[in-house]
């Protein structure tokens, strides 16, 4: 499998460095500074998180259930806004992003969830094509792009199937194809292998790695200890809303208590 089409196409705002307290390097694609997020109930889900991710990195985010990983992903998607701190993604200052600008911002992100989130009553082809219709891709191009990306994720010949007729691994491939068809700068995956068996988990992770090698920045939230340890990527470990370790070529840190 070969992924050659990816290119960096993020949008940059002109006042890129104005509001951040520390200067941001040209290479940085995700910046969180002192970010806290408190829901209306309970302790804050994130508490003063600072994180810098460079263009083209592959980052695992690990941690116990409830440590704030999904909250972090939702902040990066601008599904939530932080109660404190600044978030900058691809040059967008997310605190200042207007509601009606959110769709345009998200078109540069690919998003994959544990529960696939496919449109139930549309077939594989339409689920992937949907992402292209949103950005009004000419039909001719769409008819090339969709089969090409489906072939990349190993789903050639399943265009007509409905999500229900597919295995979990196949559904996640459809979701991945949909996330990638618009050539995003960043791919965010929240426990993408949480519902998959080990074989499918490995295949999905290998795909994510290939996508990363083709230039896309990849963030993967996962509980899969074996894969994290084997892949030797950057590992950010969270605990109770705080980053407790951040290591290059790291491994899965066991929780002591």
């Amino acid at each position: 499998m070969n992924i050659k089409y990816l290119e960096v196409n993020e949008v940059r705002s002109s006042n890129r460095n104005k509001k951040m307290t520390t200067p941001v390097s040209e290479n940085e694609i995700i910046t969180l500074e002192n970010v806290s997020k408190a829901y209306s109930t309970g302790a804050p889900a994130l508490n003063g998180v600072t994180l810098h991710i460079n263009r083209g990195e592959f980052v695992f985010i690990v941690g116990d259930s409830g440590s704030g990983k999904s909250t972090l992903i939702k902040l990066l998607l601008r599904e939530l806004t932080p109660t404190e701190g600044n978030i900058r993604v691809m040059g967008y200052d997310l605190n200042k992003l207007r509601h009606r600008k959110i769709p345009k911002f998200r078109r540069n992100l690919g998003i994959v969830f544990q529960d696939f989130r496919l449109l139930k009553d549309r077939n594989v082809y339409e689920n992937v094509a949907f992402a292209q219709r949103i950005i009004e891709t000419p039909t001719k191009e769409m008819k090339k792009n969709v089969p090409s990306i489906l072939a990349t994720v190993g789903l050639a010949g399943k265009y007509k199937a409905k999500p229900k007729q597919l295995s979990g691994g196949e559904q996640q491939r459809v979701a991945l194809a949909r996330a990638l068809v618009n050539k995003p700068s960043i791919l965010l995956a929240d426990e993408p292998t949480g519902n998959l068996d080990p074989k499918n988990s490995w295949e999905i992770m290998k795909l994510l790695e290939e996508i990363n090698e083709a230039g896309t920045t990849v963030l993967v939230v996962t509980h899969n200890r074996e894969i994290v340890n084997a892949m030797q990527k950057r590992v950010v470990t969270m605990k109770k809303g705080v980053i407790v370790s951040d290591e290059e070529k790291g491994g899965y840190i066991d929780d002591e208590d």
């Binding site: 769709p103 496919l118 949907f130």
Partner: peptide
């Protein structure tokens, strides 16, 4: 609800 959420995650405008 679910369907609309998915569409919005992918970057569809409210109008779309």
């Amino acid at each position: 609800k679910e369907e609309i959420n998915i569409m919005k995650y992918i970057g569809a405008t409210d109008f779309f």
